[in-house]
Design a protein around this nucleic acid. Sequence first.
DNA 1: ATCATTGCAAAAGATTTGCAAGGTC
DNA 2: GACCTTGCAAATCTTTTGCAATGAT
Lengths: 178, 178
Amino acid sequence: MPADDTQTRALPPADFSLGKVEVALSPLERFEEYLRSRGMRNTEQRRLLVDAVFSHHDHFDADALMVRLPSKGAAGYVSRPTVYRTLSEFVDAGLLRKFELNGRSVYEHDYGYPQHDHMYCTQCHELIEFQSDELLRLRDSVAAKHRFSVLGHRLIVIGVCAACRSARRRSRRKQDRV
Amino acid sequence: MPADDTQTRALPPADFSLGKVEVALSPLERFEEYLRSRGMRNTEQRRLLVDAVFSHHDHFDADALMVRLPSKGAAGYVSRPTVYRTLSEFVDAGLLRKFELNGRSVYEHDYGYPQHDHMYCTQCHELIEFQSDELLRLRDSVAAKHRFSVLGHRLIVIGVCAACRSARRRSRRKQDRV
DNA sequence: ATCATTGCAAAAGATTTGCAAGGTC
DNA sequence: GACCTTGCAAATCTTTTGCAATGAT
């Protein structure tokens, strides 16, 4: 296990409502660890992507990440296949969590951020995070009852957020079926 | 609102662990209602699909449904686009619920069956149903706290089912990241 | 020098759409 | 007869893959 000081690094400024978790390594350091431990190479593209991914705390898909990077021809460009391949590696490395929404893969920070779930607004398509220990207890208790060994879960509450509810107060239309 | 006796119809024999809900109309009757109310046509394909869908209680995707139907050329064949179009109508009509799993759309009975969630086994890919009122209370309480108006939710607990745990006891390999 | 990684082009898989022919009301 | 539906073919969208060139160790 390669050495490194075990200082607590500051993560990107968090407009993150749930706070952050203390971590010993930055996402990049942690990923480099992962690469070393698997005999994989520390390439510029991988470094660029760690940076692009951890410079904002938000939910994004492969497309959104591409847009955030320099376009083809420019310095720092990363091809779409490499983006997809690297996102998978980030998930394997524990840097990102992945879930599906409206038929595509959505990613969010995992490393250094606390467990949480989402509410999805069908009006503005915003994802709102929330945390509930009670939910975890409930999940584990149900699983135990079925002798099911839990690796994780995905919960998304579907509905209309506070902002959109207000906006809709006067222009109301049929609600989407979920 | 068109008349009909309000008898309780038996639904397909249920190897369904959560029991069933009392319903006034069969899925087909309910769908015909829906078609009438929207000025849509009661076609043979739609009737065939209601039948194919409600003859088994299980989770399925568009492909699995196609396989269950007569093949091209044979009587009762329904084309793939029609299957997709009709599945959407079933969801709109409240007959089916839809969710996403491994990048594809999975459907299950909604009409006539109680609310529930799933545990997904990463080994055998089985979906195990469970029901929890406490979860619903928890969901609604979290939503209320955020002034979020709930339309529904999707929860999937990911892990390894009891059967696969036993099977794995002696041939263990790395666990999948979720 | 070895061998992992990248970018390109193309493939693959799921789902959707334009449209002419056919079916339902 | 009006017009909704179907099936076909083709398009679309997202993600993956084969492979030769490039880059990391």
